[in-house]
């Protein structure tokens, strides 16, 4: 089956067409540009470009897979709403996958996958041979919990957040920024794709609350 994959949880605007046959995955076409402010302008043309490169049309696409973050909010939402609306418009299902898994699931040993959460923080999760331990978190790179930084925690860090904050991380960090791998996201969604699971309402992994304080003394709304 032919899958459109999208991820905008990082500064990279990414779209790809991935073929999935039984457990075989094949990257048919791919577009990526690192432009933290370019998601809304670039993503739709990238999807068009992927289809054109593959000599395909919308009718050839069987499903959509989207990274659901965590990620800086505005760009992440553009990718997710694009995935949801494209699927709705094409009458095909859409499935969400944790974007950090697109980095962490490709690792070996004990790895910290980290993306840039802005405001000097990272979104992160620890992986043992590619399997995530617990839920993704957000914090300053210097404030990772002990179980991550101590011996037996994470041996190295990888991802855009790791390369950017290499100096502040207690473990070795991959210098090249690694972005979520769209083929991996499709692989992680493969059981749902192949089973024809029902389409999903995509919910972003925000991890942070909106920056807003209830107005002091503001009256409760009347019905």
């Amino acid at each position: 089956m032919r899958v459109l994959a999208i991820d905008t949880s990082t500064a990279a605007v990414q779209a790809a067409l991935v073929d999935l046959d039984d457990d075989e995955l094949f990257l048919t076409s791919f577009r990526r540009e690192v432009d933290a402010r370019g998601h809304v302008e670039k993503l739709a043309p990238f999807i068009e470009g992927c289809l054109a490169d593959a000599g395909r049309t919308v009718k050839d696409v069987d499903a959509v897979v989207s990274g659901v973050g965590p990620g800086p909010f505005t760009g992440l939402r553009v990718g997710m709403v694009t995935a949801a609306a494209f699927a709705d418009g094409a009458g095909i299902p859409v499935y969400g996958v944790c974007s950090l898994d697109g980095i962490g699931a490709n690792t070996r040993g004990r790895a910290l996958a980290a993306t840039d959460a802005r405001r000097k923080e990272i979104y992160w999760a620890v992986y043992e041979d590619g399997v995530r331990e617990g839920e993704p978190q957000v914090c300053k790179p210097s404030e990772l919990p002990d179980w991550v930084t101590e011996t037996g925690g994470a041996d190295y860090a990888i991802g855009e957040g790791a390369s950017k904050y290499a100096d502040e991380l207690p473990m070795e960090a991959e210098a090249t920024p690694i972005f979520p791998d769209l083929v991996k996201l499709v692989e992680l969604a493969a059981p749902r794709l192949l089973a024809g699971a029902p389409t999903e309402q995509l919910t972003p992994l925000y991890l942070r609350r909106p920056d807003a304080q209830p107005a002091a003394g503001s009256p409760a709304p009347q019905p």
Binding site: H39, V40, L43, A44, I47, E48, V58, F73, T74, R77, V78, G79, V81, T82, A83, A84, A85, F86, A87, D88, G89, A90
Partner: peptide, 20 residues
């Protein structure tokens, strides 16, 4: 609002792309 506009614009583009 920039972030709010982007959701609508992203959706509209995707609907247009998916339907022609």
């Amino acid at each position: 609002l920039a972030g709010a506009l982007m959701v609508g614009v992203g959706a509209a583009k995707a609907y247009s792309l998916a339907t022609g």
